[in-house]
Nucleic acid binder design. Structure first.
Length: 478
RNA sequence: GCCCCCGUCGUCUAGCCAGGCCUAGGACACCGGCCUUUCACGCCGGCGACACGGGUUCGAAUCCCGUCGGGGGCACCA
């Protein structure tokens, strides 16, 4: 049974990179019929916040990711919040003490920082010197009597090369001399990531660790701990990181990079899911528009591309448009669009929103575009664009609108068909066609030279509002 | 500085592991055309890449070596 996990630290919104990692884990779990565990890595008290955890969960759910075990749903391997697992970590720290894999280190952060700088300046890898490695009990006692705090360091065996098979990267070899004895318990007694991640993954029976490539160089440290504790190592798969336009790791500097931001900007979750998957993975067929179900069916972790990917906003936007105009069901789409209508102050009932969405969905890329494209359906007293005025300042144009007004007035109601019939009549009577015929009407009804299909517009807004707008235009340009 | 990872159109990628089917396929973007009462949508077409240099081979995008380039990591962060 495959067991994978997504283990974010609640230090902010759900970042696109993390979202993608979560997605790959989720999809892999579903593909293999395994389980996905959500674990909150909140060992950094300085940065972790409870409200961030809720936002994180909310964003994950919105994206369509479902987990089988986690802080909110429970499970057999909890607790799923690291801050609640302190006893467990202490228990395993004891084991490491007994086996002599760890020792106390009394060096101060200042001392270490100095060593670090010196090493860097001399072109050596900045690693811990091992100064406290062989302190005698008397020496330790003496230091403790002076009230000097200590951390627990893991004793790294000298010169060993750790080799592991990464499902994406292939064989990776790293010599442990690259890093010195590393801290696993802070001076305040709290455990550090590299230690807890191993204890948790092992105890939670994680079989595949799928995470960002930025963790690649941590892996040997973790493998050392797996071995020291006698745990079986999981399989590792390191996903290439996501880059910004400038090819550096995607961060806030690159603009909106949280799932929440895209959601607020009118992106639909299906498009985010699809789009994020495309960063490093590709369906077998040519079309890149692919549903969650099909992805789950087709996905395999070993098919993940191994080079970093630049996040392509334009493509995600296009994909979002595809979902809006071709894939989502009208009713569902309308429901999701309501917050956006409201945001722009466009008030109406559901049926009306639905008609509007039907009319404009083909021209939307994001739900935010509703502000622009839906305006003619809601705003009656609009300004006339400068470049649009000429159509009504033109004598024939003005006559077209006058005649159109007369004809609409005689109808009970106006439908698309009526509109076609009327304009055809005007065409004959005034001998105008094409732009000369439609533009004056368009400008009179919307104030613009471009936008939604006019026949549809008049049918949706109805006779009274059409008349009102025409009167207003005739008066304005008369 | 050291270590690790990576290098196919501007971008995401297919192909690479099992060398010939590749005068390198698709998608986004861009450009042009068509459709259309407008914008958009849609359709059609165009532009455009195997980082470089050696080797192995009858034959290399695919295998090997080197160079260059990019990225990540080197915390009492995760």
């Amino acid at each position: 049974m495959v067991r994978v996990r997504f283990a974010p630290s609640p230090t902010g919104y759900l970042h696109l990179g993390n979202a993608r990692t979560a997605l790959f884990n989720y999809v892999y779990a579903r593909h293999t019929g395994g389980k996905l565990v959500l674990r909150i890595e909140d060992t950094d008290k300085e940065r972790s916040k409870k409200e961030y955890e809720e936002m994180l969960i909310d964003d994950l759910k919105w994206l369509g990711i479902e987990w089988d075990e986690g802080p909110d749903v429970g499970g057999d391997y909890g607790p799923y919040r690291q801050s609640e697992r302190t006893d467990i970590y202490n228990q395993y720290l004891e084991k490491l003490k007994e086996s002599g894999h760890v020792y106390k280190c009394y060096c101060t952060p200042e001392e270490l920082e100095e060593e670090r700088k010196k090493a860097l300046a001399e072109g050596r890898p900045p690693r811990y010197s091992g100064k406290c490695r062989n302190l005698s009990l008397e020496e330790q006692k003496k230091l403790e009597e002076q009230g000097i705090p200590y951390v627990w360091r893991f004793r790294v065996p000298d010169g060993e090369t750790i080799v592991f098979e990464d499902l994406i990267k292939g064989t990776v070899e790293i010599n442990v001399n690259e890093f010195g004895d590393f801290v696993i318990i802070r001076s305040d007694g709290s455990p550090v990531y590299n230690f807890v991640v191993v204890v948790d993954d092992a105890l939670m029976k994680i079989t595949h660790v799928i995470r960002g490539e930025d963790h690649l160089s941590n892996t040997p440290k973790q493998i050392l701990i797996y071995r020291a504790l006698g745990f079986q190592e999981p399989k590792f798969a390191h996903l290439p990181i996501i880059l910004g336009e400038d090819k550096s790791k995607l961060s806030k500097r690159h603009g909106a990079v949280s799932v929440r931001a895209f959601r607020d900007d009118g992106y639909v979750s299906e498009a985010m899911f699809n789009g994020l998957m495309l960063l490093g993975w590709h369906p077998k067929r040519d079309s890149e528009v692919i549903s969650k179900e099909e992805i789950i069916q087709e996905f395999d972790i070993e098919d993940v591309h191994n080079a970093p990917a630049v996040f392509d906003r334009a493509k995600l936007k296009w994909l979002n448009g595809v979902y809006i105009r071709e894939i989502l069901d009208l009713e569902d789409l309308t429901r999701r669009a309501i917050p956006f209508f409201e945001k722009f102050g466009y008030k109406a009932d559901f049926e009306y929103y639905k008609k509007v969405m039907e009319a404009i969905r083909d021209s939307l890329e994001t739900l935010m575009d509703i502000g622009e494209r839906a305006r003619p359906f809601f705003i009656d007293n609009f300004p006339y664009d400068e470049d649009a005025k000429s159509f009504l300042e033109d004598e024939t144009g003005y006559k077209v609108v006058q005649l159109f007004y007369e004809k609409v007035k005689q109808l009970d109601n106006i439908t698309k068909e009526d509109f076609k019939k009327i304009t055809k009549e005007i065409q004959k009577e005034l001998k105008v066609k094409g732009k000369g015929l439609f533009m004056p009407i368009r400008v009179a009804l919307t104030g613009k030279t471009s936008g939604v299909d006019i026949a549809t517009l008049v049918e949706v807004i109805g006779k009274d509002r059409v008349l009102h707008r025409l009167e207003r235009a005739l008066e304005y340009f008369g």
